[in-house]
Write a protein that binds this DNA or RNA. Structure first.
Lengths: 351, 351
DNA sequence: CTGAAAGCGCTTACAG
DNA sequence: CTGAAAGCGCTTACAG
């Protein structure tokens, strides 16, 4: 068992509160230099660190944050988590990670448990539109920040990119390359990214006077498998699209695989654009044209917004919106890819 | 502020301890059915959940575990974390994630902080040989499990693969393909995986009567960049190898890029084998031949070993060693790759 | 059948 | 200059 204040007090023949004050560098403490030295030596010798649980109970602050995401195995969320941790750990916080696999029930049960643990704040990246658990967070006055997806627009502190602009940008790129039949692998109508990127797609068509063909829009969800199946539907239809804008890179990767399997050349037979610019996007051959968003910054900005709320004690409704940026690669324009190996190195981590 | 036992007691006109007993389903509690009903209704109405911090202080158990790794952004560790969480969350535990970026100082400071928080146990996947912080864990009697890398062989609870067998297997594969000059991108001499996989490489050479050429072995560390630089050294030397066994997939990916950049064909001019079978391995073109290890199972087995120690209160020295398995792809044998898109889908996560 | 008390390990306003 | 006390919100052995 680690040493306690009481034990140290007995050994130093002072009151526990005095030890506590020395350990916490209480500036209001007037103390005999000799006593202070004696206590400091003892603290060092025993390598004393106050019990964080007892401290948390007394201070009503645990210095623990939580990040709730669908799945860390998806590189998007791994990078997001790093952003949060990098922003928070230097301020003395540790970070819990909870995966929901996209299940609202798991999200709910995680949030209940995090609340019972009295975490100081929550970064939520798995919310959907009009999410009741987000309203619950608001109601409980638990500091939180939504990332990437919002729930009730302008109601919540939020960090993300402008999905409408990004969707429009991606689609416009395809139209400007001469494509007239542009398909869309749409996300869910219950998720803000799905709704806005689709709206961006429609806006780009309108900008260029192209009519909407509802057969060219199909819901894919956010998985690789969903993307593959949806792309197959689109590409086997009588009047198939010559280009596809997919709601995310993972979905685009699914489409990419489906096209290959059908013997279609990319980009000659079908051009593909994704969204997010995960490391995998630049590794495919041909590389995946995509809309770049600063994933790590999503996380660090969310941490900042969260810590600001925790420290001021106020709920802050600020929204941090990053500008998306189109990255053109070989999946839309042949020959654009940098030679293999000269691409920016994505993962420098060990093992 | 969430409701407390005391407030509920006042409302139900019973003692706080009675509420606590009802909430915890104390089997030894004899109570008037009417009182019980009244309390249960109140509990439900207020959605009462005991304050986990106070509970942790009293019970000396926090139901929090921690996973310490170099970097979640590396898919190997993301999968490992999922394994731990999947094994632990069903038992009521939440899991803290700490990234060290391979720095012993950051590892040390994370462990000190986790100890001060009184986490119930720690999964450590960033340890090195004779790691002093591992000895410190042992000394503090904090339940822990090492994963993938061990510190003092047979001294610690450990989950990993047989790295000697894996290294031998990888190298033997290359020799059996006819390669006589096989290079090795070696990990660090301070890390168990580096030492054992190198020993496996040497054993395979010996098995086949090949002499060791020290110019063919070069330390690459565990990063993509390190792999690229080390491979360049090997491939520009006068009598260059025709095949390379890299200590990890990320290192192999670096070598893969370097070879491409030099205009070498894979596998015709240089064959490459990695280790771990991360999702990226099957996505490269050509696919990366590698030694498969069950990463997710590493995590779930570690969680089991940890929970067993926590629940029994004993330190368990058991070692769980998985058998590695060779996966042959196009980076060693041309034409082995499944058609794109038919490969197993690696990431099904949303967004 | 239910209550009162002690105690987990801290911090901090108050006393002297 | 240092001590004594209260209290954060629980759980559980003990009393009655």
């Amino acid at each position: 068992m680690p040493v306690t204040l009481k034990e140290l007090a007995a050994r130093a023949r002072v009151h526990p509160s005095t030890i506590s004050r020395v350990a916490n560098n209480d500036p209001s403490l007037r103390i005999a230099p000799a006593t202070r030295t004696r206590i400091e030596t003892l603290l060092r010798e025993t390598d004393y660190r106050p019990n964080g649980v007892a401290r948390g109970l007394k201070l009503r602050q645990t210095f623990v944050l939580a990040v709730v995401i669908p799945d860390v195995t998806n590189p998007f969320f791994a990078a997001l988590f790093r952003g949060v941790e990098d922003g928070a750990s230097s301020r003395g916080y540790n970070v819990l990670l909870c995966n929901t696999d996209g299940s609202p029930e798991r999200q709910r049960s995680h949030l209940l448990s995090l609340h019972a643990r009295r975490v100081d704040g929550i970064v939520l990246a798995s919310s959907y539109l009009k999410d009741p658990t987000v309203r619950w967070l608001r109601h409980q006055a638990i500091p939180y920040v939504l990332v990437n997806r919002f729930s009730d627009e302008a109601q919540d502190p939020f960090v993300g990119s402008d999905d409408l602009v990004g969707g429009r940008m991606a689609t416009q790129h395809l139209i400007q390359l001469g494509h007239r039949r542009v398909g869309h692998l749409a996300g869910k109508a219950t998720v803000s990214t799905g709704v806005l990127r689709r709206r961006g797609y429609l806006a780009a068509l309108a900008d260029h006077g192209l009519e909407v063909d509802s057969h060219l829009i199909t819901e894919s969800g956010y998985t690789e498998e969903g993307g593959a199946r949806a792309a197959e539907r689109l590409l086997t239809a009588p009047n198939r699209p010559t280009a596809i804008f997919a709601v995310t890179d993972m979905t685009a990767v699914g489409a990419w695989g489906a096209a290959r399997r059908m013997g279609l050349r990319i980009p000659e037979d079908v051009a593909i654009v994704g969204y997010n610019d995960i490391p995998l996007a630049s590794r495919l051959v041909p590389g995946l044209t995509t809309v770049h968003v600063p994933i790590h910054e999503f996380g660090s900005a969310a941490a900042r917004l969260l810590l600001e709320q925790i420290e001021t004690g106020d709920a802050i409704r600020r929204r941090v919106i990053f500008n998306p940026e189109l990255i053109v690669r070989g999946s839309t324009v042949a020959g654009t890819d940098a030679p293999a190996g000269l691409r920016p190195i994505a993962a420098l981590a060990t093992e």
